[in-house]
Design a protein around this nucleic acid. Structure first.
Lengths: 207, 207
DNA sequence: GTCTATAAACCGATAGAC
DNA sequence: GTCTATCGGTTTATAGAC
């Protein structure tokens, strides 16, 4: 939508170009190190033109996030450990492609209430997804019963925490050893909760 | 050291006062929302005086971190699950008292290489600590053997990840439910790796 | 040490000409 | 839509009086 003909196409192409350039620069230099002048400079347009399309830096980051969440297709509830593994890989790719966002996740929540709201919404969506998946796995006899009240909930939180902060944590590790993938963290947390049946199934999936 | 008599005491007291005020403001308003003018204004000193002691904002944050790591006593390797629980509570208190640092953990790594270096050092220290603790627990028969190569290592990473990012993650959760403590996350991750003996011991400790 | 005063360089943001 | 010009605010830095 928006991309129709001639003049209208132009309208959006500059706007889209700004978002693309901004995202690239954020990924390269970090959100704080990128000024509006940098973006317009790289693009070869004037700062005035840039602020015509986006009044504030805040508006740019919000537009990028809107685009991100627009592209994001809420995945189906995984019905098997194989589908769970696919979900982990999907999340990992998504995080990698939007590294700057997860690098600045905490800070961006402080930038605007809208971003804060969106983060909260994504968190709620994902926690529901995992809750349902855990219920399925437990019913299918691949996931152990809760060993104490709240175990599932806290395990899910550990998974989401690892997903969100995997990027900056990996950077922290870098000098010590090669950073693990999110997939590895996720299965390491989940593995001890699997039944014998579940463990065998996982081994088949991951080789 | 440095605090001796008269004039010499004065030298450091202003410097210390700046660090204390800056840290308080960072905790209250967030690192980015605090200007040098804010700090000098709250203290009732001139900006010129502030920049006499610290040339750049970067220097202030580095000095605060130096002080933090100076105060930090590297704990003994926990020899029992009770001592492990005490370590978790100690870490939790430390994180809470320096909330601003963990809120901005990823961003501060980008501010200066020195901070990045210090974070990496702390990470290395802690990973060693947990490795040794895990070995002790396994020898004492309260921790299961590794069920796959790297399980201990990745479990430790999950613990450290939760420790570092517990504060911003708790803020994200806030609207959904009451945030769990770091202690809760830590034991939720560790519990499934405990032997029956270990699980019983833990129940006695935590009630 | 502490203060005032000042200036350069940069930032986000706005107004108005074309 | 795009541009130039400009504003107020910030960090950073320097000078010099007390």
């Amino acid at each position: 939508m928006g991309v129709v003909i001639g003049a209208v196409m132009m309208e959006n192409s500059t706007k889209q170009e700004i978002l693309k350039t901004a995202k690239d620069l954020f990924n390269q230099r970090g959100f704080n190190a990128v000024s509006l002048r940098d973006i317009s400079g790289v693009m070869g347009i004037s700062k005035g033109n840039l602020t015509y399309h986006f009044k504030k830096k805040e508006d740019i980051i919000e537009a990028i996030l809107d685009e991100m969440s627009g592209q994001y297709r809420p995945p189906q509830v995984p019905q098997s450990l194989g589908e769970m593994n696919a979900l982990f890989m999907h999340l990992q790719t998504m995080v990698k492609d939007n590294a700057f966002y997860f690098w600045h996740h905490a800070q961006l929540a402080q930038v605007s209430p809208k971003i804060r709201e969106q983060q909260s919404k994504v968190y709620q969506t994902n926690i529901k997804l995992f809750r349902q998946a855990f219920a399925v796995f437990n019913k299918d006899g691949v996931l152990l019963d809760e060993q104490f009240p709240g175990q599932y909930e806290q395990t899910i939180d550990s998974l989401l925490l690892a997903c969100i902060y995997w990027i900056p944590f990996g950077e922290l590790k870098q000098k010590v050893g090669q950073p693990a993938t999110f997939q590895q963290y996720a299965w390491a947390v989940l593995y001890p909760l699997l039944t014998e049946k579940g463990k065998k199934l996982l081994q088949e999936i991951r080789g």
